[in-house]
Structure formats: C-alpha cells, structure tokens
C-alpha cells in the first residue's frame, strides 16, 4: 500500500543504550497513549486511515514480538498478520478506560504468537533459528513503521531485567518469550505449581515497580 515509504530515509539510530539516558529521547507517554487510543477507537468504527496510522505505530512491535517468540521469519509474518487483522476485527471492543491501546494490541499479538508456538510444538516441526534476530533485507523493510520507541524500551528492558533474580528471569524467559504454561514451567523446573505461578507474577511485578508502570 504505502510504497512511498521506501523513498524515506532510514532514521538515524542512537548508540546502544544512550537512548535511555538522554531525556530528549524519551517519548511522551501520555500523548502517545492518547493518540493510540483515539486511533484504535476510530479503527473500531471502520476507519481504515486511522488503522493505517495505528499500524505505523504498532506493527513494528507486533512483528518484532512475533519474531522473538516464533523465531521463524515466515511464521512470524503470518502471526503478525493474524494479530493485526484480529486488532481490526475486535477494535470496537477496546475500552480506553480499561487500559492502553498499546497494551491491548500487544496482548493480542502475544497471545497469537504463543498460541502458534504451542501449535508448532504439537506438530513438532518447529523451525529453530537460534540467536539472531530476524531482519528483512533493508530494501524489503517497511520504513514507514515507527520503531523509534523500541530503542528506548529496549534499554529500559535491559536495565529492568537486571533487577530480577536469575530464577525470575528464567521464569519470564520460559513463559513470556517461549510460551510455557505455568504448569509446564513447574514441571520443567521441578518446582511446585504454586511456586511457579508466584515466580511469574513476582517477576512481572518487579519489572512493573522498577519501571513505575501504572495501569
């Protein structure tokens, strides 16, 4: 659709980690949240232009999350597509008073990715591409999509993960990023189910408190 995006230059990428410490690099969370909520509400009324603006802001996270979780670039693209279409389909169900548009969209995306991983596991033909984060070759990348938010958030996440205990990090890695259920986590670590649930919860709460995230 937006082939004009290709004409745009790639944005300069700040040096690793610096983004978090430079006050000017921090996006204004409130304005960002209000704008996204407005776009999502409008998309819910069938406004495809609003949906495209929303796409520009969130498709990078939706896609990146899918890549991180399912690994295989082709499957990740399918998952991202399904998730974004699901966002369109359900947009009228979004309730701004119950949470941010960003978390609403990314919750849908995460669920899709995890569901896919579990299905792939069931088929036992999961493709593994360890380590390297997928990136499309530069000329295929959609440069209209905003990934600026990511640099600040990635630095924030790196710092946040350091406040977790190794056990909490492990729990988060196996559940959030690898799609284990709480029971699978308990079984694979040989810990009581209650402990597994508590560990997951404590990990997310500790991150929330470290980042001072509010609902």
């Amino acid at each position: 659709m937006s082939t004009d995006g290709r004409a745009r230059p790639l944005r300069a990428v700040p040096a690793d980690g610096d983004a978090a410490r430079r006050p000017g690099a921090r996006p204004s969370p409130h304005r960002d949240a209000d704008e996204l909520a407005d776009l999502l509400v409008r998309a819910g009324r069938g406004d495809t232009a609003a949906f495209e603006l929303l796409y520009n802001r969130l498709a990078g996270s939706v896609h990146g999350l899918a890549v991180r979780i399912v690994r295989d670039p082709q499957i990740a693209e399918d998952v991202a597509q399904e998730a974004l279409v699901e966002v369109w389909r359900q947009a009228a169900r979004f309730r701004p008073e119950q949470g941010s548009a960003r978390s609403w969209v990314l919750t849908i995306a995460h669920r899709r990715a995890v569901d896919r991983v579990r299905t792939e596991q069931a088929h036992s033909n999961r493709l593994v591409a360890h380590g390297a984060r997928h990136s499309a070759s530069v000329e295929d990348q959609d440069t209209v999509v905003d990934t600026m938010h990511a640099e600040w958030q990635a630095a924030r996440v790196r710092q946040g993960l350091e406040v977790l205990t190794p056990l909490q990090r492990e729990a988060l890695e196996l559940t959030y990023y690898k799609g284990y259920t709480n029971r699978q986590l308990a079984e694979s670590l040989g810990i009581p189910l209650g402990t597994a649930k508590a560990r997951i919860r404590d990990a997310v709460i500790r991150l929330r408190d470290a980042w001072e995230v509010t609902a």
Partner: peptide
C-alpha cells in the same frame, strides 16, 4: 502495561 514494554523492546521494521 508492563508486558507491553517487553513487547515494544522487540520492535523491528
């Protein structure tokens, strides 16, 4: 909102 931060950190074009 917290897990959304984790997701944003993965953002790729």
């Amino acid at each position: 909102e917290t897990t959304a931060v984790l997701a944003d950190a993965e953002s790729t074009a």
